[in-house]
Design a protein around this nucleic acid. Structure first.
Lengths: 232, 232
DNA sequence: TTAAAACGGTGACAAAAATCACCGAAAGAC
DNA sequence: GTCTTTCGGTGATTTTTGTCACCGTTTTAA
């Protein structure tokens, strides 16, 4: 992952102040001294929709925090890849934090779901802040908890529900994420997120269409019912 | 969960010293002042093999750390329950730590796999130590990381491998845990750990027996090959 | 010792999912 | 425009898993 720009460090003061405002919005609970320190040490990365952020097997030396947009975390195994969970603004990618103390290749991948702005905190500093600022370590722990519960939720879904129910849930979640019931998704990408094959998705969407749960248009899916059969 | 005994607090000094030794063995990386503080504030709980420790939906106000034995963590959903991962000596149950800042019912259950001794740290103190002792927060973070990766591993296995492979892996892991290739497991308990039904396990074990991967005796299973087809 | 519960074996069948093999339509590249 | 790629539809088949039904054995509890 290359540093694309570091405007916040080299730019005019006004830009910096805007950044600090945004930072405070995204991470409101930090100690007041910490914001300036973060801005002085962090870099920014902008990713366009669909762009890869990190790949399984890579080594990380920074902690990413989403400022704007959404990051999709997914795992790969045996040529099958599947969605784990999303990272929203104000949340850090905790699986990277994992590697603060132990330098190991990561066992997941990340992709920008939308246009996404990421704050990258250098590990050296993260270590320092984690020890010196309880407000910072609380944020980290919070993110750990959230990620953990998301992953647990995903695991439960996979083991307990059949593909049809998982698809419904998936579509509803996508709809909530984008705040729209018009979803620009290909059957292939859905299949990949759910760890199955395109044919399976095509068949189920057809069935759901006949049940008037959704309508399939040219290159997108329109949800008709947003909470029906939505489990949790 | 009721307090069964608190010997370390009320007992003679010698017992206390033994406990401190054991504590140092299990958690070697803590700040030296912390051991006495922990012993002064913790309670102990002894669980016999198979005994329930906590149940999904309960509220916790302590952080359990395994001193001896093994705790099995599992999830329940729709009458299906399945194994998430194990907690070994020196490790804390991080999903409980989750509830330090947010008081919510837990969404998992725990059971003593063997005779198990658990150190229970009161949440009030955990909060304090977490802020004041970086060595303590490092342990917490480490446990988070380990649990997270275990869960991720479990998730990947469920989505990528069919039951036969998961069973082989499960048996191998059990064998490693108990340091024996004689496994005292009923088909029912295996089925429950893997989130499937007994018949499925019976069928697969029969198949594996014909492949000379294992031999089934009266109430236990003997593994013949310990690393064959063992994935990761 | 007797009754009840747990255990495991197995056939038959149903449901769910994966896989293969096509096909035409639409979108994007050039 | 034309060519190529992606997309989606669909039948046929197999594999995998889940479910039901029933039975005899072993273990446990009363």
């Amino acid at each position: 992952m290359s540093s694309k720009f570091q405007t916040s460090i080299t730019n005019s003061n006004s830009i910096r102040m805007i950044d600090q405002q945004r930072l405070r919005q995204c991470l409101p609970a930090l100690h007041k001294d910490l914001y300036a320190d973060i801005i002085a040490n962090a870099t920014y990365e902008q990713f366009s929709s669909g762009e890869h952020i990190v790949h399984q097997g890579a080594y990380l030396d920074f902690l990413p925090i989403v400022l704007d947009g959404v990051i999709k975390m997914y795992a790969e195994e045996d040529n099958v890849q599947f969605l784990l969970y999303y990272i929203n603004p104000g949340e850090s990618c905790i699986m990277s934090f994992n590697h603060l103390f132990v330098q190991e290749p990561i066992n997941f991948s990340a992709i920008a779901e939308d246009q996404t702005l990421v704050l990258c905190l250098p590990m050296r500093k993260v270590k320092e802040w984690f020890v010196n600022y309880p407000s910072f370590s609380k944020v980290i722990i919070n993110d750990y908890q959230r990620n953990f519960e998301d992953l647990l939720r995903t695991t439960k879904d996979i083991i307990c529900f059949k593909m049809e129910d998982r698809l419904i849930k998936y579509l509803n979640k996508k709809s909530n994420l984008s705040n729209s019931n018009m979803l620009h998704l290909s059957h292939q990408s859905i299949a990949s997120d759910l760890g199955t094959s395109r044919e399976v998705i095509s068949r189920i969407t057809k069935k759901l269409e006949s049940q008037e749960f959704l309508v399939q248009h040219k290159r997108h899916i329109e949800l008709l019912v947003n909470d029906n059969r939505m489990i949790a």
